[in-house]
Every structure is written in structure tokens, then in C-alpha cells.
């Protein structure tokens, strides 16, 4: 019970401190707008295949997540508040608080990306919306689950910004490939059961990542 309350408080603290500056939120929305317009301009008058468009959607989501999700721990180190946090609560409540904050952030972000992508890029036609939105949801949860522990790692390193995508890409690749595949199925109008295998992989990836992170976070945080 203590864990639930304290991680909820960490989540609240993150949201409050985010809304005080709105640094990440504004920058991320601009990032999304810029990348989607880049995609739009590069398409021009061409009509690319659904496969390419599903891939591009996940490229946009991946790089927005990479620029947004590392903030939680890096900001803590920059402000010099990590020591206070370490004194006040347990490592696992910090982990869960940050995980849920990342989850909220990336879910809002990828909903926004997917929505505007659908709206702006006319060639991208989704036929099975149930598969599409479930893929967006599970893909975002997977991104958050893997990047929380990686963000904690890179917050302690010297070159923070460039290191994050380098470390995250090989780990997130099974997730991204599966999500792209499921998105392609959604554009082809597949039935829900046909994408079941993809969802199983996504869910098992999330479970594996969160379990490993819970076991390892202590060592990173208390270092």
C-alpha cells in the first residue's frame, strides 16, 4: 500500500513539475509537428505504399519517445534533486512513479501522433481500427517500459542526449518491428485474431522489460 501511495505521489510530482515549465510538452509537440510535416513534404504528390507509411509512423513515434522519455531522470540529475528523492522514498516507488509518468507522456504523445498522422496523411488508410489503436497502446507501453530503466542508466553517464537512442534502439527493435507489422495488418484490414500473435509478442516484451527493470533498478538508483 505504501508503494502505491508513494509512487502515485512521485507521478503527481512529475506532472506538477512538468506543468510548471511545460518544457518537455511544448518541445515534444513541436517535434511531432515538425517530423510529420517532414514526412508530408517528402511524400509530395507520390502515393507510397501502406507498408512504408506504417514504418514512417513508428519512426516518428520512436524518435519523439527518444527525445521525450529521457527527461525524467536527466532533469533529476540536472536539478540535483535525485539525492533528496533517494532519501525520501524507496527505489521501487521511484521506479513506478517514473514509469507511470513516462507511460502517461508517451500514451498522450503517440495518440496525438497517430491521430494527426491519420488526419494529415491522406494516403494512410487504416481499415481495422481495433488492431491499430491496440498496437499504438501496447507499443507505447513497451516504449515506456524499456526506456525508463535506460533513462535511469544514461542519467549517470556523461553524454546524455546522444547516448539514449544508441542504447535504446537494439533493445526496442523487436518491439518496433512487431508494432510495424501489426500496423501493416491494420491497414490491410485484417481480422483481430490475425494480429493476435503480434499482440502476444508485444505483451510478453512489456512483461519481460518491466520485470527486469524492477529487479535491476535498485542497482542503478542507489549507485
Amino acid at each position: 500500500m505504501y508503494l502505491v501511495i508513494s509512487s502515485y505521489q512521485i507521478l503527481l510530482k512529475e506532472i506538477v513539475s512538468e506543468f510548471r515549465t511545460r518544457y518537455a510538452l511544448n518541445a515534444l509537440i513541436m517535434f511531432v509537428v515538425v517530423t510529420i510535416s517532414m514526412v508530408l513534404f517528402s511524400i509530395g504528390t507520390e502515393s507510397p505504399s501502406q507498408d512504408i507509411l506504417s514504418g514512417t509512423l513508428w519512426i516518428v513515434i520512436f524518435f519523439s519517445a527518444m527525445s521525450g522519455l529521457s527527461r525524467t531522470f536527466v532533469a533529476e540529475e540536472e536539478r540535483g534533486t535525485s539525492l533528496t528523492l533517494r532519501l525520501l522514498t524507496s527505489a521501487s516507488s521511484v521506479y513506478f512513479g517514473k514509469l507511470f509518468y513516462n507511460l502517461v507522456l508517451i500514451l498522450a504523445l503517440s495518440m496525438f501522433i497517430a491521430g494527426s498522422y491519420l488526419f494529415i496523411i491522406k494516403e494512410f488508410i487504416v481499415k481495422s481500427y481495433d488492431i491499430f489503436w491496440l498496437t499504438i497502446f501496447l507499443g507505447s507501453v513497451g516504449l515506456a517500459s524499456a526506456s525508463t530503466i535506460l533513462a535511469a542508466i544514461i542519467a549517470k553517464a556523461n553524454t546524455k542526449g546522444t547516448l539514449f537512442p544508441v542504447l535504446a534502439f537494439p533493445i526496442l527493435l523487436p518491439l518496433l518491428l512487431t508494432a510495424i507489422n501489426a500496423t501493416r495488418l491494420a491497414t490491410e484490414g485484417a481480422f483481430f485474431v490475425e494480429a493476435l500473435q503480434e499482440f502476444q509478442i508485444l505483451i510478453s516484451f512489456i512483461i519481460v522489460m518491466i520485470t527486469a527493470s524492477i529487479m535491476l533498478f535498485d542497482y542503478v538508483w542507489k549507485d
Binding site: 524499456a146 542508466i153 549517470k156 556523461n158 547516448l163 519481460v208 522489460m209 527486469a212 549507485d223
Partner: peptide, 22 residues
């Protein structure tokens, strides 16, 4: 990217495990 020996060891061990489970 990490200078301190023990921190380097801890963080790279954690990364190798996280990578290993995938």
C-alpha cells in the same frame, strides 16, 4: 561515457542484462 570505475561497472552490467533479456 562513464568515468568512475564502479559506476561504469554497475551501469554496463545492468545494460548487458537488459539487452540480454531481449
Amino acid at each position: 561515457a562513464i568515468e568512475e570505475e564502479e559506476r561504469k561497472a554497475t551501469l554496463s552490467s545492468v545494460y548487458s542484462i537488459v539487452a540480454g533479456v531481449t
